[in-house]
Design a protein around this nucleic acid. Structure first.
Lengths: 122, 122
DNA sequence: GTCGATTGACTACAGCTGTAATCAGTGCGA
DNA sequence: TCGCACTGATTACAGCTGTAGTCAATCGAC
């Protein structure tokens, strides 16, 4: 479907998913809070995301207001799916087993999982 | 920890995880069965994997026998962890909720998840 | 109306990735 | 022993990625 979003680009997407629309500078401020990049770098990444059609911009006076074109949920869904396919042959339970064996599951996770399962069985 | 394995390199790793040790040509045969690459391409990828220290080779006469240095389980674990961190803030249950909402969970998956949870609660 | 600040566009460039051709060493068959 | 086939090593090269500098247009202040 839509083009591949690189690691650095994803950081910018996250900033846009947090709030939108935003000006380039707003996005840069947000991004620079966590990554030590220059404003120009963020703007370049915005351009590339535009080229990939995963964000859009509406002119507002002499600047642009950027907004995501793909929902975070959709992105997350497709990435999760890709991982499951690539590493677990499309099966989800081995992934969970994997995470469980790494002790990545907190007590809260377990409780929530039970809820989810309960919902699925009905 | 160990260096990043690229998409194409991963295909070669899978071939080595399937069986090892193998000669370069064995690996190439396996890989070429699913990807339309040249033997040279596979050999280049083997070299790069060597450089990244994720595989090793033992001389056998005038050729080499390649074998993985990282276990598939370890790789899969670290990739899964990375995904969970990158997209779900380190929480596992949103991932499951995500996959569940995509209907990626089969009945078998659900049954297995219940087993896993049962094990974890004890 | 001119000048500086703001902001997007263009350009840069090294390193990684995908894909492969070519080179060079070496052991085997004639 | 001499050349060929096999195999790893070296080199190639375009496209993507990370990171950023510079250019050019324009809007507001004086």
């Amino acid at each position: 479907m839509s083009e591949k979003i690189s690691e650095a680009e994803l950081v910018v997407m996250e900033a846009l998913w947090e709030a939108s629309p935003q000006t380039a500078n707003d996005v840069a401020d947000r991004v620079i809070a966590s990554r030590d990049w220059s404003v120009q770098t963020v703007k370049t990444l915005l351009s590339r995301l535009m080229a990939k059609d995963v964000i859009a911009a509406d002119q507002d006076g002499r600047r642009f207001l950027y907004r995501p074109m793909v929902a975070r949920d959709d992105y997350v869904a497709s990435e999760s799916g890709r991982l499951v396919n690539r590493l677990f042959g499309g099966r989800v339970s081995p992934l969970i087993a994997q995470l469980a064996s790494q002790d990545q599951l907190t007590a809260d996770d377990i409780a929530e999982l039970e809820e989810i399962l309960k919902g699925l069985k009905s």
